[in-house]
Nucleic acid binder design. Sequence first.
DNA 1: CAAGAGATACGATTATATTCGTAATAAAAT
DNA 2: ATTTTATTACGAATATAATCGTATCTCTTG
Lengths: 128, 128
Amino acid sequence: MAHETNGVKPTEAELTLLNILWKIGPATVRQVHAAVSETQKTGYTTVLKILQIMHDKSLVIRDETNRAHVYAAANSETHTQSSLIKDLITRAFGGSTSKLVMRALNENTSKQEIEDIRNLLNRLEKQD
Amino acid sequence: MAHETNGVKPTEAELTLLNILWKIGPATVRQVHAAVSETQKTGYTTVLKILQIMHDKSLVIRDETNRAHVYAAANSETHTQSSLIKDLITRAFGGSTSKLVMRALNENTSKQEIEDIRNLLNRLEKQD
DNA sequence: CAAGAGATACGATTATATTCGTAATAAAAT
DNA sequence: ATTTTATTACGAATATAATCGTATCTCTTG
């Protein structure tokens, strides 16, 4: 393969910032820092550095038009969630999706959530 | 809380060894090393060291009766899977179990797996 | 009991992730 | 134009994970 567009797993800190970008949309370092500061104490340049690293890894894209660069997640939340799940399934569930799902449900799932999932199953079965 | 019995998340390498211990049961370093060597090249003392670290973290227990210590996973596979899922749900799914489940199912799930899950849902609903 | 085989313990090295201080740069305000 | 302010770039320090070489210990056995 040539230039490795993706296949990168975000680290802990990186996932924190991705969650923010998915939530508030494209944002400057200052905005991301403000958001992250609501839940934890982190220096401004730390956020900046991590965003720069994420840019190197192509986890985010950035618009350099203005002095304050605007960062955005390179991949959708859905796409990233799928890849994180796939990774966990491989590492801890012997590759079995249903094992993971069953383990997730065995814990504490509300009636509403169970109903939602049942509806999804119905829709899935009608399709293929 | 007093002495922190658990709540430790296994690292990548540690999870690899846990998978082996769950599969083959209590085992010596040599046996674990043999098993891990089937899929990757890792030095004997590397495996030893990681098991020792895991012992410090209480991720494994060990029987020191014989010269070759016998290691075993401290927690069940089920318990560890649950905690890994919970962690992922927190970090990437805003705390929603059903979001994770739906994302997992949206990919490629066989008819048999869908049926298994539907049965589980039925059982769950009857309970509470 | 001395030597060899096989095991653990220890410490150093390397890799990666995280953090942040300081320098350099660019825009804005006076 | 000079100063102040806001920003990025850079590099170093710290923390954690992973790897493995060597020293040390402990049985076995000749």
